[in-house]
């Protein structure tokens, strides 16, 4: 087994992990109760999943400019995702698309809510 083989297999493992994250995200999308919790499920294939796949591709490609391109992909992904998720989260929050009940944690725990009145 040569170094090249090891790198190839490592790349495959990264691809596999990325695909598993995608599956977990899809299941989370279906199971989670409301918009904002579903967004949590969607964050991980978008960030770690894509990064893992890019790493896998890089491990198998091993050419300098391809790797540069892959770094660009990761960078663009990391720069653009927060913008999109923030806009969606804010719109969801403002239109009240989080689950119906809003309760202060302090009341649930029987603790005193020490927040100033406002």
């Amino acid at each position: 087994m040569t170094v090249v083989d090891v790198l190839d297999v490592l790349g495959l493992v990264c691809l596999l992990l990325g695909a598993l994250l995608c599956l977990a995200a899809a299941i989370g999308l279906l199971r989670f109760p409301d918009l904002l919790t579903r967004m949590h499920a969607g964050t991980k294939p978008q960030v770690l999943g894509v990064l893992l796949v890019i790493l896998g591709v890089g491990l198998r490609s091993r050419s300098g400019l391809d790797i540069g391109m892959l770094v660009l992909i990761g960078l663009f992904q990391l720069l653009t995702i927060p913008a999109g998720s923030h806009m969606v989260g804010r719109a969801g929050f403002r239109t009240g698309q989080i689950a119906p009940a809003h309760i202060h944690l302090g009341q649930r725990d029987g603790e005193v809510d020490d927040r100033p009145e406002g």
């Binding site: 949590h40 964050t43 991980k44 770690l48 990391l78 927060p82 989260g89 804010r90």
Partner: peptide, 13 residues
């Protein structure tokens, strides 16, 4: 805020 929202488990609203 960007780094917080990139980590799953927290979404910046």
């Amino acid at each position: 805020a960007e780094m917080v929202s990139l980590v799953p488990g927290s979404v910046v609203v």
